[in-house]
């Protein structure tokens, strides 16, 4: 396969080596989408493409938070449970307690952010492994969901209905749900934060070398708390979008979503050890997963488990790619200059 990397190598401007995984993911997205378009009728339309955003809005938002965390070299396993908890809180707040929807959403976002910040504090202040801390957070949030209700609660609320049933009309008769619009705004904000603010640069520095970041006088501990708070916020927002998408809260929603988010981030080219990667890559990663799911639903004869198989193969491929790039960078560095 002639990858984007090959094309770039011929271009007069030598590309930044770390952009390569993002271009590979973009190439993969175009490739899978073209395969779908060739094989199935009605696949290669703008609306099918827009549906990718509509059907995966919550995962895009969750993946944003996960990207921040993974860029610092951490991991957040609690996101799926926090998505479910947020959906539950939305359903209970609007439909059982009859509170105004904006107030409920604000409360949900605060809970998610606070939950993430608390985990970040544990990780920083007590030097607990992120894996363990967020695993505990995952159990905790899921347990709270099931305590609130063991059954699905449907949302009957004017605001939620209005937002869910209407959408942004685009030229050519296409449409984009407000959930997807929210996700795209979140992506834009996140890219800005990572690229043009001190917080964003500190995230990269901490991921590159926490020890160095500290010795350079950067607030390494504070940055780590902030990324988990961001991830908590994104999970809560993802939960709200998920509630909009399903118009219900369910304690068993989003089981395993943390793994989908991690997969999307890794396929998007972010290195699990931190310090290297781009947010746009994670978005492309989510879209690649989305295209695979869409292809399977268009086909109708393939088992949905093929999605998992495809994700597995892609993950292996991308981790190998990162290794290769990393190894070449190392050998260049050790070569005398």
């Amino acid at each position: 396969m002639t990858t984007a990397a090959d094309v770039l190598r011929r271009s007069p401007v030598t590309p930044n080596r770390r952009h390569i995984p993002v271009f590979v993911t973009l190439g993969l997205l175009l490739l899978t989408f073209s395969i779908g378009s060739v094989r199935y009728e009605n696949f290669g339309t703008p609306q099918v493409f827009l549906d990718l955003f509509i059907d995966n809005a919550f995962l895009i938002v969750v993946a944003i938070g996960m990207t921040f965390v993974i860029l610092t070299g951490g991991i957040d396993l609690s996101v799926g449970s926090v998505v479910a908890l947020s959906g539950m809180l939305c359903a209970i707040g609007t439909s059982k307690l009859q509170l105004p929807a904006p107030l409920v959403i604000l409360f949900v976002l605060l809970v998610g952010t606070g939950f993430g910040a608390a985990m970040g504090y544990m990780i920083t202040a007590f030097q607990v492994q992120p894996f363990i801390t967020t695993l505990a957070g995952m159990f905790l949030a899921r347990g709270v969901c099931l305590t609130l209700s063991e059954n699905q609660i449907s949302i009957e609320n004017g605001f939620f209905d209005a937002v869910a049933l209407n959408s942004l009309r685009l030229p050519g008769g296409n449409r984009l749900s407000w959930g997807a619009v929210t996700a795209l705004i979140a992506v834009a904000v996140a890219i800005y934060v990572l690229q043009w603010t001190r917080l964003g640069r500190n995230v990269y520095a901490v991921g590159g070398s926490e020890q160095s970041a500290m010795l350079m006088g950067l607030p390494a501990g504070r940055t780590k708390i902030q990324v988990y708070a961001i991830s908590g916020f994104c999970s809560a927002l993802g939960g709200v979008l998920f509630a909009l998408y399903t118009l219900s809260g369910d304690p068993t929603h989003a089981v395993g979503m943390e793994l989908d988010a991690i997969a999307a981030v890794v396929i998007g080219g972010t290195v699990l050890t931190g310090g290297s990667g781009y947010l746009i890559g994670s978005v492309l990663g989510v879209l690649v997963l989305g295209v695979i799911k869409t292809i399977l639903s268009f086909d109708g004869t393939l088992s949905s488990w093929w999605t998992r198989i495809a994700i597995g193969v892609l993950l292996f491929g991308f981790i190998a790619l990162q290794r290769l790039i990393g190894a070449r960078r190392k050998s260049r560095r050790s070569a005398p200059s």
């Binding site: 160095s212 010795l215 350079m216």
Partner: peptide
């Protein structure tokens, strides 16, 4: 042992924290 961040650019390593 150089205590800078290898994943950032040369310029950013000089200025990070006081950009």
């Amino acid at each position: 042992e150089v205590n800078l961040c290898p994943n950032l650019s040369v310029a950013e390593n000089i200025f990070i924290g006081r950009e």
